Amino acid sequence: MRRHGTMTTILSGLLAASLLVGLPVGSAFADEPTDGTGAGQSATEVLDTLEVKGRAPKTGYKRTQFGKAWADVDHNGCDTRNDILNRDLTSVKYKWFTHKCVVKSGTLHDPYTGKDIKFKKGKKTSTAVQIDHVVALSDAWQKGAQKLSKTKRTELANDPYNLLAVQGRANQKKSDGDAATWLPSNKSFRCEYAARQIGVKHKYSLWVTKAEKKAMAKILSSCPTQTVPDYTGVGNPTAEKTTEEPDQAEQQTEQQTEQPAEQEQQPTEQTQTQSPAPAPTPEPTPAPQPQQQSVYYQNCTAAREAGAAPIYQGQPGYRSQLDRDHDGVACE
């Protein structure tokens, strides 16, 4: 009994000591980030913890090394692309029969340009808003992701922290650039942009090049109090987000104006996470032949193996037969 009482006294003392210094029970450090990004900490200090190395060869890089494009990794029944559109757009309306998943329209306050962009899902309009990997997958591959497991790379490619809905043209200009080669034209967002890249690289143990670190440090010198962002998007927190289904009159109008191919796709989109979508009915115009294009993919499997998916309208290799829902994005 005496030994039991002594042990109880010791444990009580340790618990009291941990409370005095502000440590939660079972944690080594009170301010240790739980998501691995370093969120809330000084971006400059977290940058200094990143390893500095030269860029590794791009040899072996394919988009498929990071899993299926826009996979439903959180198993919520909605692909990653639409998850991010849902998060970053306001005044969202959904395509009916998709269980509030497929975003039909909305407004984006683009962090890269500072402009407001009206998004409308469609063959010639969807590319106005694209989903950017803040740390490009090719850049990640050359700075440590080669050593990650396939599961971890898939997590990186679909991690909401590493994804932002942005203006399509800005996304294309960025390509796979890092902070040393590309920055948003919206200068007021550059500090948060660099800090978010730092958070991603910290979480996935990716390194930075000497030039990249120098560029990040220069950006952060203008905002010394900048912290690594938390796990949310960058949408205006004061903006009211409305998520409404089209009213009955709007549905009737769309039923009369939408293309037959789009109508046939609706049941597929409703259950797209349960079974693969069937191939679309070929359009009346003849399909382009390989010799007529500088880049040609026989199907989406070939495009993914080449690391080209998703393919936006206007990019090499895009053709309508690969764009199942005719929204301007093939092999999603």
Rank of each mutant, 00 (worst) to 15 (best):
V73M: 02
T154E: 07
K213L: 00
Y231K: 15
K213W: 00
S275H: 14
I311Q: 04
H99E: 09
D35C: 01
R3E: 08
Q251M: 11
A145C: 13
Y312R: 14
N86P: 12
L148P: 04
D116K: 10
A279K: 09
L220A: 08
Y193T: 05
L108G: 00
L47T: 08
G38A: 03
S42C: 06
P282R: 10
M7L: 11
Q291N: 15
V234N: 04
P280M: 05
G77S: 11
G144R: 03
S275P: 08
G22I: 03
N171D: 09
Y61K: 05
T59H: 05
P288I: 15
K124G: 05
A180M: 11
T107R: 03
V208Q: 00
T90A: 11
Q298T: 13
Y312E: 14
Q292C: 12
K210S: 07
K53E: 15
C331W: 04
T301D: 05
T64L: 15
Q252M: 10
G235E: 04
K213E: 02
S275T: 08
F29S: 08
P237S: 09
D74P: 05
L20P: 13
W70A: 02
R2Q: 06
L183P: 02
A16W: 10
K100E: 10
N158H: 01
Q270L: 05
P224Y: 12
V228D: 00
K68Q: 03
A303W: 01
Q274D: 00
P33C: 06
H75S: 11
P229E: 08
K53A: 12
K187H: 10
Q167P: 10
G60N: 06
T257V: 08
T9R: 15
E264G: 07
T98V: 08
A17K: 07
P33W: 06
Y318Q: 02
K150P: 11
P278K: 13
W96Y: 14
D116P: 03
A145N: 01
T301G: 05
P160M: 07
A302M: 13
A180H: 10
G13M: 15
Q172T: 11
V134S: 04
P282I: 00
N86Q: 14
E283H: 15
T59G: 05
V134P: 00
T285M: 14
L14D: 03
T98H: 11
A195N: 04
D132Q: 03
A215G: 02
N76K: 13
G144K: 11
Q248F: 14
G54F: 10
Y112A: 02
P280G: 04
P280F: 00
Q266I: 10
L137F: 03
A215E: 01
T181V: 03
K213G: 01
T49M: 06
K68I: 02
G60C: 11
P237Y: 08
I219P: 01
Q272G: 10
K95V: 09
S222Y: 12
S91K: 12
K218H: 08
V329M: 04
Q65G: 07
D83C: 02
N186S: 07
L137N: 01
H109G: 05
E264S: 13
H4I: 06
T209L: 04
Q226L: 09
L50W: 01
A217S: 14
D110Y: 02
C223Y: 07
P288G: 12
A179S: 14
P111G: 12
G177C: 13
C191Y: 13
K213C: 04
R319T: 09
N299C: 06
A330S: 14
K173E: 14
R196S: 01
P184Y: 07
S222C: 07
Y94E: 06
N162F: 06
E155V: 03
